[in-house]
Design a protein around this nucleic acid. Structure first.
Lengths: 184, 184
DNA sequence: TCAAATCAGTTTCGATTCGATACTATTAAT
DNA sequence: ATTAATAGTATCGAATCGAAACTGATTTGA
């Protein structure tokens, strides 16, 4: 009997709904849509390989056309700014403005998840398992990525791009992330 | 430093997004919208006090007008059926048809959350805490509800409605749920 | 070399949802 | 009996969503 699986799925569903309700409520107070604050939050955690329209659409699971519209709205209202990639001129990098950053931070603080710290390791494991099973991109940080190399203390290099990464860089979320160890 | 809080919120956000993506993908395969399968899933777990338009709108955090529309669509296409309450004629109870139930079950199985069982207690605690902190309804099961009374083995009574509850009843989710012990 | 294929991103379109408001019908309160 | 509250529906405008067509830049490969 898949009773325990059903139960977990139900709790997860409930947690999802709850979390989204809180986000939506916050968004409404700011005159924004849910998807807008989801984008702002994502931009606070993603690295420079993952701050594009395409990547956001993969992360949030919506079409890039739809995301493109939302990004247009966010830029018009001064929450984000775009900058064209120096090398590949098709690519535009997205970044939070001071205004956008402030909204994202306030949201993080308003959605208080007291006592949830203990959940973090289990959540990460669970995420990795779900992503793997469904053939979805990783979106993890360099610390747990097999491409990350550390030739010295506080010195990092991405084995995929061969670029040097700062201490802050390796804390961010990357679309190319692949887990170090294959977790069962 | 709210570093750990931010991290958990981020993982939760990611888990939310992922879970919704899987649900949306499944919904699309069935020719349904995300909200439709969310409703179907909810109807598999809610009890007879919680199977109404109003309650679903509270659970999913959307207006009852919007939910009413979606319910209309689901009924037209034979996924659910309505029945008027015998006592209060304003109320209509919702139930899954065989077709609707089959869809909900297939979704549960398709969204495989292997290894997640260990998360369940922590998830429940976390949910209760979030709900309490934000003044939201509980949506828990009778087992953890302060209204639930058990005069004998496998015999249950709801102290709120004074109705007898079956063994199956007390496993379901209720909008009137209030936790037994005040967590934290 | 240069045409074809691919890719990032935008635009446009129709369908659908969403929230707000007004509305009907039933029940509860005074 | 009148009034207020509640469950649910209907309607409307705004916004999202996915699909598809469309730029412009990059890569492929013959």
């Amino acid at each position: 009997m898949a009773d325990s699986i059903s139960a977990v799925s139900h709790w997860l569903e409930r947690l999802s709904a709850l979390h989204r309700n809180l986000m939506r409520r916050f968004a409404a107070e700011e005159g924004l849509q849910l998807v807008h604050v989801e984008i702002l939050q994502y931009l606070t955690v993603c690295n420079r390989y993952s701050d594009t329209t395409q990547t956001i659409s993969e992360y949030l699971g919506q079409t890039k056309g739809s995301i493109s519209q939302s990004l247009g709205h966010l830029e018009e209202n001064g929450f984000i700014k775009r900058s064209q990639d120096k090398v590949d001129k098709r690519v535009f990098h997205l970044a939070l403005t001071a205004k956008g950053n402030s909204v994202a931070l306030r949201m993080l603080n308003s959605i208080n998840l007291e006592g949830a710290d203990k959940l973090e390791p289990a959540l990460k494991t669970m995420l990795a398992s779900i992503q793997k099973k469904n053939g979805l991109k990783g979106f993890g940080t360099c610390q747990s990525c097999k491409f990350n190399q550390s030739p010295g203390k506080n010195s990092f290099v991405c084995g995929l791009t061969n670029e040097k990464l700062s201490v802050d860089d390796v804390k961010k979320v990357c679309k190319e992330h692949e887990p170090l160890v294959s977790g069962e």
